[in-house]
Design a protein around this nucleic acid. Structure first.
Lengths: 136, 136
DNA sequence: GTAGATGCAAAGTATTTGCGACAAG
DNA sequence: CTTGTCGCAAATACTTTGCATCTAC
């Protein structure tokens, strides 16, 4: 088991307020990719006085601190997930919205190769696959 | 030289108004990836009475008709480009915003393979590389 | 104690929409 | 003619921000 978000905040010198602790806890426990509304709903159940502005401010702060990562999947609201050692990309079921995480080292290597071919160092990338479930 | 957007509209039965003809022309001639504001500016130079609502409605219509494609690059406004036979992905210079188009058949094949591995047919995908120019 | 965080409501952006006037087929 | 489009302004959706108050360190 790796560090919790709260531990990461301490490690990175991010001040821990009650609100941030709650948001950290909810995100640490999430195993999906909540958008700000969903996160706000979950957080509100723990402390109903937290404002959505704080949720926005906190996810932004956590993102800038390298604790969360933001995804902007097709035509939807921004979604967040905890950033951890294992990088992965996403396969999105266009019918159900289900999100599957995957890793493909070969694709990663090829991406770096493409960037280099054009004289660039790859600093970031986004790979999203959109699919429909196959008929058996 | 392939079809103009105007010709594609006719082929697809999209009604051609004066405004749409102008937007079609500007997009056909663009060799970048304008966002709606930029497109509106270019279009306004030809006919200053076109409203931005029409530009929004038209790019949406063209997208749904398979004439334009929409990109939502990191943290910016939506950008559009003409959809044509040659599929490609994008490498974005994070400093300058410059956008380079590239094709890598090997990555394309691997994507399909990943989707299949999870029992999906790939219907769409998004691959964006973000890089910084290498020091010589 | 002080710098920074919060809640609230108001302000920004980007985009969409209702409606009466208008134009393409 | 008739259906769909346009321009306008108002509405919406998501996100950010100014300000007075409060809190972690």
């Amino acid at each position: 088991m790796s560090e919790t978000i709260e531990q990461k905040c301490i490690a990175k010198g991010v001040k821990l307020t009650d609100q941030r602790k709650i948001i950290a806890k909810v995100m640490s426990e999430a195993n999906d990719h909540p958008n700000v509304d969903e996160l706000y709903n979950r957080v509100s159940k723990i402390d109903s006085k937290i404002s959505i502005a704080t949720v926005y401010r906190t996810v932004k702060l956590f993102e800038e601190s390298g604790i969360l990562t933001k995804h902007e999947f097709k035509g939807g609201k921004a979604r967040y997930e905890e950033l951890n050692e294992s990088h992965h990309d996403h396969l999105i079921d266009v019918k159900s919205g289900e999100i599957i995480e995957f890793v493909d080292q070969e694709i990663e290597n090829l991406q770096k190769k493409v960037a280099e071919k054009y004289g660039y160092d790859l600093v970031d990338h986004k790979l999203e696959l959109y699919g429909v479930k196959k008929k058996p």
